[in-house]
Design a protein around this nucleic acid. Structure first.
Length: 984
RNA sequence: GCCCCCUUGGCGGAAUUGGUAGACGCAGUGGACUUAAAAUCCAUCGCCUUCGGGCUUGCGGGUUCGAGUCCCGCAGGGGGCACCA
């Protein structure tokens, strides 16, 4: 590729080229730093603006990026797109006179730093801090308008202290479903002490110890009871264990194939004692409150689906066993199909399996026994087999059902019919109740199972006449689920032995569901319930590079929370930072936390208020989502040693209605980042924020009021005919071949083009440094902002960058004489045409900026600049607003021109230009005359022409086409369109 | 399998509530300037055409005076979830 951006021989001395751009950019970056140009002003204290002033009632605007992980790999041009967008918005809001909080931190705990440390033998802190310094330099060179006093990293002890403090608050809280919140809603996190008070007073029975007084329980028993209520608790249910990574993982970090998202290792379900967070308690609020925030519908939908709230019924089925009558509770979203249930299935982990009989009942088909002599043996073997399976194995079975009869029978509470109970791994223990009533007539999975084990199929629902449902399925063998169908009982009469007056005959499905639930509740055998797909959040990891838990255990393994005064709990040195990993298939391996390798740190003597005692520390660390859960608040004052965030400052920056757009939810005004965090970071963060809201530490119910997902920058990559990647910047494009596709060559060889990501291995990386070197940061910013809509992905094409450079050159030339460096603007009044164009441009660009469409804003600025280029001399009164409007996008060149035009102050806080309404709009507009939608004439008319007059002109203009006949219909939309329907 | 989104010139992309499709930029073509080249400036630039016009927003229908925009069906591409009862 020819490089035509460097200085050329004989080029004018003051031409705006890459070299001049670099010197201008570095000069202004230095000036901005020295003058505190981008400092945001807090309500009080020493975080003032650059003039030493506090907020003083100025409107706050908080714009934020998803902070980066400081990787050592360096940036490519795809990374900073979101940062540039946020910066443009921030600069625009500053010019609107708002007090803008815009800063950048680093999400610095995590795996890559740890791996790098293992390789180099250095402490992860050393390499992480180097990476932060390097990344910070690269971002600074882009001209991002951060308040650099507010930067921090999640690994800073000052920050980690508050991460641990928040954990402590969550640990020390429970979810009181009856508590009325200050926003009027029901259900709230409350201090665990309130629960203890309820136990003490007898207001709430103690689960497992009903009728006993709280003080009669020993410490171990009390701890166990409270653990079942705490919002951060030690989980005893199966967790995702990944031997290949040597750590347990959250559900969100496990793929559908049952593998780790990072590293793609198998994941096994194991019962391990691990920290978990009760995010499920917030399932409903996390869905409901999506209505209060301004997020992309796509992300809201992903969160709704992830939480997966479903409404149904819990129904109790009595089960006779040798140990007495057992209760099997099933969850169903279709209680209307209770008449069609022909068997029941429990998950292999289900408690009911403790009660299976020691011999098969009479007449059980051999296929149900799986070749085992007794139900006990069968169930035991099946449970072991299920445990050893990964989710991947289950998927590989491709829906093929496995299972066994348990020897038990349940009684259908409506029909009184006896149903055989099976166990099968298609029923999951951690969804619903771990037990289902199988309705093979209405569910594909149940149907498959019924076919395999020769179980009866009953249809209870039939389609409405004229519905879209597939009648063939209903009449035939396959399961049939109708959504607008009616429930009938004529087909199922024979199966009733007890109807108790309940008839669903002729009802729509939704009506039938309501009626059944009513019947179940009245009969005391079931009730309407809500179920969630969302699971509690597994919160501990067996890693070195993360936040330690502020928890110690006494000799009886009773956990104790360390007092806030002992925070932060810093990471100890250990002989080896690497995780203990295992054969990826070794499901029986056990996690080993690296922190346990420093026994001097683990074992401590502490006085927790009852004299010095021996304790050992929790050796897990928090997942790296912990630090990113609350960092937005810390920008408000990262050095605050007294609070996580101070109340007045929080209310000013993030409280409900802190500015016009914040709404009742409050939160960060604009949060820009990738859509890949839709259900991880963004869900966890909302959860923590709501807990802190419930406990009264923050006044906003949501962390981020407006979310924006920037698109990805994609890139072409090229391979030679052997399929090896060749450097993209050495490939030349030839003319289009006969198929219309251009041909590509690399050093004379044929090359193939493919389209995808930018990456080192694809040999198509373009770095910001390359852009600074060849074009300057302003051209780089301008190009990224002009490529297309911010929320869409688009291909990088270095060849197109030159267009932006030419625009800046022309602007420069309109102000500065290229040969002498003299400013050459005119102070004479501008002509009418320029005046109109200027004011229309101001009006249009303002709208584009408000709607975050820099691409179209840029197009309009180019039009104005091209017009100025054609004038004999550039009017100052036109070029100054142009410079101001361009400055959020290309700030350095604009500062330089502004300065050369005689302004001593930075333009960063200069008021955004305001259009003079007298000059907005057109002198004449082109009205089109359509006949049956085809344009037949164009008329130049006044914008406020009367419709009657326009109609008259239009009819005259196309009179010859109408052949003298009166048109059948004429639609006039003055001043733009006249649409004529001619007579037949 | 279920759910969501996208599809406009050679390319990136513009187009209020349905109202002149192709703003702006890249590439291309012709010209000016120059010894020459670069840079710069001017013009041109969807397709077809018998020069009247006709066609054109992935494909096929529909609603409408009028559809890139709304509705139905299909194709291609991308994303999310996936034995969730």
């Amino acid at each position: 590729m020819t490089d035509n951006t460097q200085a050329h021989e004989g080029e004018p001395a003051y031409r705006y080229n890459a070299k001049l751009a670099q010197s201008i950019e570095e000069k202004w970056q230095k000036t901005w730093d020295e003058q505190g140009t981008f400092w945001a002003a807090n309500v009080k204290g020493d975080l003032t603006d650059g003039n030493g002033k506090n907020a003083d009632g100025r409107t706050p605007y908080f714009a934020m990026d998803m902070f980066p992980y400081p990787s050592g790999k360096g940036l490519h041009v795809g990374h900073p797109l979101g940062y540039l967008a946020t910066d443009v918005v921030s600069r625009y809001h500053r010019m609107k006179g708002e007090n803008v909080l815009h800063a950048m931190g680093y999400d610095a705990f995590g795996l890559p730093a740890e791996q790098y440390a293992v390789q180099t033998g250095q402490h992860p802190r050393v390499t992480t801090e180097q990476n932060i310094a390097n990344m910070s330099r690269q971002l600074h060179r882009m001209g991002l308008s951060f308040d650099n006093r507010r930067s921090f990293a999640t690994i800073d002890p000052d920050y980690m202290r508050w991460t641990q403090w928040i954990f402590s608050r969550i640990y020390d809280a429970w979810y009181d479903p009856d508590f009325i919140r200050r926003d009027g809603g029901k259900g709230s996190a409350r201090p665990i002490s309130e629960l203890v008070d309820k136990f003490k007073s007898g207001a709430k029975p103690i689960p497992g110890f009903e009728g006993r007084a709280w003080d009669e329980l020993d410490a171990r028993q009390q701890a166990d009871v409270l653990n079942d209520f705490r919002l951060a608790y030690i989980s005893k249910s199966p967790v995702n264990w990944c031997p290949g990574l040597g750590t347990v993982l959250a559900n969100e970090e496990v793929t559908a194939e049952g593998r780790s998202e990072r590293g793609n290792y198998p994941v096994f379900q194991r019962e391990l004692r691990q920290w978990s967070m009760r995010i499920t308690a917030y399932g409903h609020r996390l869905i409901e409150d999506l209505d209060t925030i301004d997020w992309p519908e796509k992300v809201k939908l992903m969160q709704r689906n992830w939480i997966g709230e479903s409404h149904g019924a819990a129904v109790h089925f009595p089960v006779a066993s040798q140990d007495g009558e057992q209760d099997m509770e099933v969850y169903t979203t279709r209680p209307d199909t209770l008449f069609g249930t022909t068997f029941a299935v429990v998950s292999p982990e289900h408690e009911l399996l403790e009660h299976v009989p020691s011999a098969w009942p009479q007449g059980v088909p051999e296929a149900w026994k799986g070749g085992y002599a007794t139900p006990k043996e069968a169930v035991h073997a099946y449970r072991l087999a299920a445990e050893a399976k990964t989710a991947k194995d289950r998927v590989d079975e491709g829906g093929e059902k496995t299972g066994l009869f348990t020897g038990l029978y349940a009684t259908n509470p409506i029909t009184g019919k006896q149903l055989p109970i099976f166990t099968a791994d298609y029923v999951l223990m951690d969804y619903g109740t771990g037990a289902i009533m199988a309705v093979p007539g209405g569910d594909q999975r149940d149907y498959d199972f019924a076919v395999k084990f020769g179980l009866p199929v009953i249809y209870t629902v039939k389609p409405l006449p004229g519905s879209n449902d597939d009648l063939a399925n209903y009449e035939g063998k396959a399961p049939f689920v109708s959504h607008d169908g009616i429930v009938i009982n004529s087909a199922t009469d024979a199966t009733f032995s007890k109807g108790d007056g309940l008839s669903l005959d002729g009802l729509r499905v939704d009506e039938a569901i309501d009626k059944v639930i009513g019947w179940l509740e009245a009969a005391g055998v079931g009730k309407g319930t809500v179920s969630y797909r969302l699971r509690d959040w597994l919160f501990s990891r067996q890693r070195y590079w993360g936040e330690p838990f502020p928890i110690v255990y006494d000799e009886d393994e009773v956990p104790h929370l360390l007092p806030d005064s002992m925070l932060p709990i810093n990471l100890p040195d250990v002989p080896d930072y690497s995780p203990k990993t295992f054969d990826p298939q070794d499901a029986e391996s056990n996690p080993e936390a690296p922190l346990s390798r420093n026994e001097d740190w683990v074992n401590i003597t502490l006085d927790l208020g009852d004299g010095p005692k021996q304790y050992h520390r929790d050796t897990n660390t928090m997942p790296n989502w912990a630090g990113s859960c609350w960092y937005y608040m810390r920008y408000i004052d990262p050095k605050d040693a007294e609070h996580m965030v101070e109340t007045d400052e929080f209310n000013y920056w993030m409280g409900p209605h802190h500015n016009k757009t914040a709404g009742e939810s409050g939160g960060v005004d604009l949060y820009i980042g990738g859509v890949e965090h839709a259900v991880l970071h963004l869900l966890y963060s909302r959860f923590w924020h709501k807990v802190l809201y419930d406990l009264g530490f923050v006044s906003s119910s949501e962390p981020f009021h407006k979310l924006f997902n920037q698109g990805m920058i994609q890139a072409y990559a090229y391979t030679d005919d052997r399929g090896q990647y060749v450097p993209a910047d050495e490939v030349e494009e030839g003319p289009a071949g006969p198929d219309g596709e251009p041909t590509f060559t690399w050093h004379g060889q044929h090359a193939n083009r493919e389209f995808g990501k930018m990456g080192k291995s694809l040999k198509n990386i373009v770095t910001p440094d390359y852009m600074y070197e060849n074009y300057g940061a302003d051209t780089f910013r301008l190009y990224e902002m002009s490529m297309g809509p911010l929320d869409e992905s688009r291909p990088w094409n270095t060849r197109n960058v030159i267009g932006g450079m030419r625009f800046l050159q022309r602007l420069w030339r309109n102000v500065v004489d290229e040969n002498t460096g003299e400013v050459k603007v005119s102070d004479d009044p501008m002509d009418e045409k320029t005046l109109k164009l200027l004011n229309n441009t101001i009006a249009d660009v303002t709208v584009e900026m408000e709607n975050m469409r820099p691409n179209t804003a840029i197009a309009k600025l180019i039009v104005l600049n091209n017009h100025l280029t054609g004038l004999k001399s550039t009017p100052r009164a036109a070029v100054e607003p142009l410079i101001l409007m361009l400055s959020p996008i290309a700030p350095h060149i604009c500062e330089e021109l502004w300065n050369r035009l005689g302004h001593a102050e930075s333009l960063a806080h200069e008021p955004w230009p305001k259009a003079d309404e007298r000059y907005v709009g057109q002198d004449t507009v082109t009205a089109v005359v359509q006949i049956k939608g085809k344009i037949r004439a164009k008329l130049e008319v006044s914008p406020d022409i009367a419709p009657e007059e326009l109609q008259k002109m239009a009819l005259e203009a196309v009179a010859d086409r109408l052949g003298g006949k009166e048109p059948r219909k004429v639609i006039v939309k003055a001043p733009k369109i006249v649409s004529i329907v001619p007579a037949q």
